[in-house]
Amino acid sequence: MIWQFDLILLTLVVIFALISLRVKDLMGASIVFGAYSFLMCLIWAGMGAVDVAFTEAAVGAGVSTVFMIATIYNTGRMIKPRPQDMSFKLLMMLVVVITGAFLLTAVNDFPEWGDPYSPVNDHVAAYYLTHSMSDTAVPNVVTSVLADYRSFDTMFETAVVFVALIGIYGIIRRRRKQDDSDSDTDALPPYDPSESLIIRQASRMMVPFMQIFALYVVAHGHHSPGGGFQGGVILGASLILYSMSYNLPTLFKKMTEKWIILLSAIGVLIFSGVGVICMMLGSNFLDYSVLSQILPATDSVMARSHAMLIVEIGVAFTVMCAMVGIYTSLASNGRFDKGL
């Protein structure tokens, strides 16, 4: 860490956050927000949290910007100023200032950055760092903590991603019969990028490589930064790129709505199914070491390593389908026939 570099990055982050709040054009605001996420990604990478940086780059700077633009496409591009009385704004400012003051008083109680005696570092972290290799044969401690030691948390995170998809479907999915009154978009002028041969060919060249790279990220998460979440987001992004450069019906030919929901549920099922199998073999939920009884040619250490891969694949399924499902429902305004 070079502190000058960090200072520049943190200053820029604050500036970008303020800009994205101030800009009246929502399209510009979401682009600035993407740049903000990318700077955060650089800060994570500088702190050594490469896995977090990877996720931030894929989710924050990549896919969430696309989600916001898809939302703008169906709502409206400009902020319409709402007449509000001044006293309400002053009240809100008072609330924010008081909350901020409380938060700032808590800053003093934080331990120093990287303090070896802070509560985070002297509890279980040392055990994970020293025993990850001998317990699970996984050199990347982030993966072993995420998918083995703390897999209960990760299972419910996956379930949360699944629930988010279901929630968005439940809110904006519409039946095709009753949609005669929804050409109400005052958003972007109609422009169809799928008419451009250049964009089509470029995406045809990029999408397969993106998918292979995503599979590599999923499978190689044991040894390098990456894992189910990052790989799933990249897979989802490749499908989103495909549907943007052609159009939505082309994507639905490859991957129908039914499969999107089904595969995202299957992802959660794989994760929790591994846990249930562990219980059936007479151990605790998600205690992978007993899987050596059914996985061929593995001892109890390698069983944990292999089970992590299975679990990460489940996570990747869920995350990929959540990304594609959220994008398609936002871009087509819940109709799933055409859009963006």
Partner: peptide, 21 residues
């Protein structure tokens, strides 16, 4: 390679969208 494919295509897409609109 990816920058070589992606960046000019993105530029083309933005310009084309601007021209069409």
């Amino acid at each position: 390679n990816f920058i070589g494919i992606g960046s000019p295509t993105a530029t083309h897409a933005i310009m084309d969208a601007g021209y069409e609109t």
